[in-house]
């Protein structure tokens, strides 16, 4: 599914300003914020959709400017998509993605990790679900041993389930191997 959207430039009446954790300001069209349940609820609570209400910048302490840029790209692309509806629990997960999404998420794992957390924080269900499906698709058809490698999980099972041979704990495949990923972005400069 793809939607061609007309380009519209935000005006003060129909946009809000969000501030990333590193202090960069982004002007967001209110139409885009509808895709984020967190932002939509905030706008509704503060009545920022009214033209006579003064709109203060919204601080997003958990989102860096790079993540925000990426998220805005997603919101722009899905601007005219129908509202996301959660499948019922009996659905069968689909691992097919449109080309744009595959290109959009063709990013290093550390960026994917942060984007997933950002999508969760901003509650953007379509993005959140898509990244979850991408991650699930990466282990399709893989054995437990291969999953350990792909997801960088240290085993606590004594023997390999296939060979019965005791598994050597390898420090290079420990769960701490991603220490360079910043789980909590540094606070914005004062």
């Amino acid at each position: 599914m793809s939607c061609e959207e007309p380009t519209t430039s935000p005006t003060p009446e129909n946009n809000i300003t969000v501030v990333s954790s590193d202090g960069k300001e982004f002007l967001l069209d209110l139409k885009l914020t509808e895709q984020s349940e967190t932002l939509a609820r905030l706008i509704s609570n503060f009545e920022y959709d009214r033209t006579d209400v003064k709109k203060d910048p919204v601080p997003l302490g958990n989102i860096t400017s790079a993540q925000m840029q990426k998220i805005i790209e997603w919101l722009q692309h899905h601007r005219y998509y129908p509202k996301w509806e959660q499948n019922d629990i009996h659905y069968s997960t689909s691992f097919t993605f449109e080309t744009w999404v595959e290109e959009y998420l063709n990013i290093p794992n550390n960026e994917m990790f942060e984007l997933l957390n950002a999508a969760n924080y901003l509650n953007i269900p379509r993005l959140f679900s898509t990244i979850c499906r991408i991650m699930a698709s990466r282990i399709t058809g893989k054995s437990a041993e291969q999953i350990r490698t792909v997801l960088n999980i240290k085993t606590d099972v004594k023997n390999d389930v296939y060979t019965g041979i005791p598994i050597q704990e390898d420090s290079s495949s420990s769960e701490d191997g991603m220490s360079e990923i910043s789980l909590s972005p540094s606070p914005p400069p004062i």
Binding site: N109, N117, F128, S129, L151, N152, M178
Partner: peptide
């Protein structure tokens, strides 16, 4: 790029990935 540290995800996020 570094491997994806699945188990470091918050529980709700992790649960969603596994549900897929």
């Amino acid at each position: 790029s570094p491997l994806f540290p699945l188990l470091k995800l918050p529980y709700v996020v992790l649960k969603n990935v596994i549900s897929k």
